[in-house]
Design a binder for these strands. Structure first.
Lengths: 223, 223
DNA sequence: AACCATACTCGTACTTTGTACGATGTCAAG
DNA sequence: CTTGACATCGTACAAAGTACGAGTATGGTT
């Protein structure tokens, strides 16, 4: 009996696909960090088995490429209706948000070759946006500076103690007399600014972004 | 017989130390990349055995922390005799050179906690240099923007096809009609600028660095 | 010079990882 | 019901980190 003509009850075989694998991998990476993203854990999270995954994806490396591309897909494309400056500004803010949500992504981008389709489309849109207001040469400059800043900032944010838990420990370790004695400038900055109530390292992002955008605009006028 | 009273002939026991382990690890990472830096290979390179290494270093993680700190130690400290601007400029140029020599270092810096001593001394010197010409607030801004730019640029340089070998392949893949059709802006930039004889992505570093430094100086005056 | 505590070296083995191979199961079309 | 294409997964192996404890050398004390 029961040659189960349709999806009857086990509900256990949602039919694995490449997309499901990548989506699961992205979620797992967000939860546990990319270092703990193993094929076995991923299979378990998907209610499957390790070797099933390899039927839809040729290797773990391809999974890593894949989730990096998914991250890029989350970044807002610049709005080509706007001037290049506000449009690029918005996309940089979006990129920063996305990379903060996926702190493991930036270091991965380094080792990965082969930019995925979303990555290519994204870069194409950004270049097009810059070109709408800048020369080819200045586009190259702007592209390099802005992306360096965004990625670099994302790395620094990722390296910060996430929130509360380890923060105190690290700070306690650093703001000792040890620090005051050996690294006076660091000590002054830590106590006089970084640990002050209103200070939020994240605010430095918009300062730097506007600094760079304004400077690029100025140079493009005197070109 | 032969209870070999002293170092007679094997010349095989250069007496492992933590320093030798880290120096060997640094060299191996430079040669093979950090992904292929394994304890066994490191032991072999040092003419030793895996478990010997663990007597001088508590874990592989500590080795990674250690070589990141060695990389920081290679970066020139800012010259406190100079004005903040040329001094910081020189240290950024040095940082870029060092990180280009050790392309695996930047992504490592993200995951590592615990700043090593060389790292702390370096940051202390940079902050001190900035403070010699800028307010506390502006020092925070400058510090964040500049380091983000330097690290981000290093990541992008590391992601570039190293030299010659894979370059052609990647370019061939990208500069097809495929690219021209789907990503016209990217195609224009690639053919009209990036692949032009005189173009060197590395030159974008000094452009961006001076752009940021000039802008910082301007803002600090109108503060 | 003889001795011993201490520090170093390393053989063995266990765990976790990526993934190759091939057997088993499932389902649509005839 | 049969068939063949595709999806699933059990088993197994190689390479990695590293715990354990047995050997070996060293340098200080008599």
């Amino acid at each position: 009996m029961a040659t189960a003509t349709a999806t009857t009850q086990p509900a256990k075989r949602p039919r694995m696909t490449r997309e499901r694998v990548l989506a699961g991998a992205l979620e797992l990476a967000d939860q546990t960090g990319v270092a703990d993203l193993t094929i076995r854990r991923l299979a378990e999270a998907l209610g499957s088995k390790p070797m099933t995954i390899y039927h839809h994806v040729p290797s773990k490396d391809e999974i890593l490429d894949g989730i990096v591309d998914l991250v890029f897909a989350e970044i807002d494309l610049p709005d080509l209706e706007l001037d290049w400056k506000p449009a690029v500004r918005a996309r940089c803010v979006s990129a920063r948000e996305v990379l903060a949500r996926h702190p493991w992504a930036v270091p991965l981008m380094e080792s990965r070759r082969s930019p995925g389709p979303a990555t290519l489309r994204h870069h194409d849109a950004v270049v097009a946006c810059l070109r709408s207001g800048l020369s080819l040469t200045m586009t190259g400059h702007a592209y390099a500076v802005l992306d360096a800043f965004v990625y670099g900032f994302a790395i620094q944010e990722a390296a910060l103690p996430s929130a509360g838990d380890e923060m105190d420990e690290v700070v306690d370790d650093l703001v000792t007399d040890e620090l005051a004695d050996h690294f006076p400038a660091l000590h002054e900055f830590a106590t006089g600014r970084a640990m002050q109530p209103g200070y939020d390292f994240g605010d430095e992002f918009e300062f730097g972004l506007d600094l760079i955008l304004d400077a690029l605009e100025a140079r493009s006028h005197s070109e």
